[in-house]
Amino acid sequence: MEEFIDKFNYVLVVILMMTGLWSMLAQNNLIKKCIGMAIFQTGIILFFISIGAKNNALIPILTETANHTYNDPNVNEVTNPLTQILMLTAIVVGVATLGVGLALAQKVHQQNDSFDEDEILNNQTK
């Protein structure tokens, strides 16, 4: 139980991701699917940032402080930069995918006058 409280945030992160995933799978509306996709992606980004976080650490920009100099930084006082870079990439990839998804949704709407998946399928099988 103590462990559960220790890692409670991971539970929230997983719930967030699953909300997004559920929306991608189950929503009828194409825009909602896109928003769900973005939520799923931010959930994953949050997961990565969480595993790189450190207690009582500073931002990953070196400064001259008391127990911490440019040339000899205290590693435990600087947040992990690697996960942050990976997630910068993931955010940008995410917005690129969102843009393409929205463009496709717009084209679909132009043809079918609807964002509703079932309606579109009905239109197309007609």
Binding site: M24, M37, F40, Q41, V100, G101
Partner: peptide, 11 residues
């Protein structure tokens, strides 16, 4: 078709 692929591919 491409939109569905996008959803599946992104997932």
């Amino acid at each position: 078709a491409s939109f569905n692929y996008l959803m599946m591919g992104t997932m």
